[in-house]
Amino acid sequence: MRSMVIGGIILVIALMVATYFVVGDSFSFSGDNFDYINSLTMLGGLAIISITVFVALKYINQIKNDTAGGELVEDKWDGIGEYKNAIPSGWGLMFIGTIVWMLWYLLVGYPTNQFSQIGQYNEETLEHQKRFEEKWRNISSNDLVNMGQSVFLVRCAPCHGADAEGINGKAQDLTVPMYASYGIAGLSYPIEYGKKGTIGTMPAFKNILSETQVKAVASYIISIGDK
């Protein structure tokens, strides 16, 4: 046992020396560069390493010298018996403590009706959409067409192509003058709610594009059909 203790002490010293050589410049216990956080980190590391080593030595010694004892349960599994030992008190306290901490975290530490990153993101998204709608509510016809082209290239071009000609029959050719005659209202409906055609089914964009963006895409389609 004495040799194990000596070995543990040597291990602790070796680990701390190695740690200091790796990050020693970050630690200063005096002078103008004193940083109590780094100093506490170093002391905490020393404590953790020391406790870990000596606890491990204690249980290694216990495994080597102690013998099992106690009353066995009647049932056996593959010839392996189980002692009628009570649950360790530490385990029980940790289980109860975990439940208490969970309730505290849920109701006090991080209540569900308070700040959350997801809630903040949703609020900022809605605020951005509101500002977007206000900014482009009275947009000019030229700006509306330019906006529609930008939205079209992102949302519609994967099927209709960047030139809106349908990518060799994959989707409808929107450069046909017929579509320009539908007007903004006639084109906005299939953009918002989708449409099943002879080539395929167009998905609905009502929950993806804003009202202004739908109107802009329709205006862009009309502009390319008028050319």
Rank of each mutant, 00 (worst) to 15 (best):
F27M: 00
N65F: 04
I87R: 09
N85C: 13
I184M: 04
W77A: 07
M16E: 10
I9W: 03
Y105L: 15
D78F: 12
L126E: 13
L57G: 15
L40S: 13
A180K: 13
L103N: 11
A218Y: 03
V53T: 12
G81T: 03
P158V: 09
L40N: 14
G200F: 08
I51N: 07
S223I: 01
A185Y: 04
W136G: 03
K64V: 15
E123H: 12
N168P: 13
A185G: 12
L11W: 06
S116K: 01
G79F: 02
D173R: 05
L153T: 09
Y193G: 08
N168L: 03
S210C: 07
L174E: 02
G44E: 06
I6S: 15
N146I: 12
G7V: 06
E211S: 15
V53D: 12
N122C: 14
T175I: 09
P158M: 03
A56S: 15
S219Q: 07
Y189S: 07
E211P: 01
I222R: 00
L43D: 10
Q149W: 00
S30I: 01
Y179W: 13
A18H: 05
S140Y: 01
G8K: 03
D78P: 13
Q213C: 04
V55D: 06
R137V: 04
I37P: 14
E124F: 06
E124W: 03
G194A: 01
V176F: 10
L46N: 04
Q62I: 04
G119N: 14
F152G: 00
N65M: 06
V108F: 09
V12H: 11
V176A: 07
Q120G: 07
I13P: 10
I224D: 02
M178W: 11
A185V: 14
D173M: 00
A171F: 03
S223N: 15
P158A: 04
D66K: 02
I224E: 02
K84I: 01
M4E: 13
I199Y: 09
M1H: 14
I184E: 02
V145M: 00
S30F: 09
L103T: 13
Y179N: 01
G45K: 01
V53L: 11
T175R: 05
G186Y: 02
K76R: 07
K196R: 15
W136V: 04
P177D: 01
L126C: 06
G161D: 09
G92A: 08
D75C: 06
N113T: 14
C159I: 08
T19N: 14
E165K: 10
K84T: 11
L174K: 00
A18L: 08
F21M: 12
V100E: 05
Y36G: 14
I96G: 05
G97S: 12
A218S: 11
V23K: 12
F205M: 00
D143Y: 01
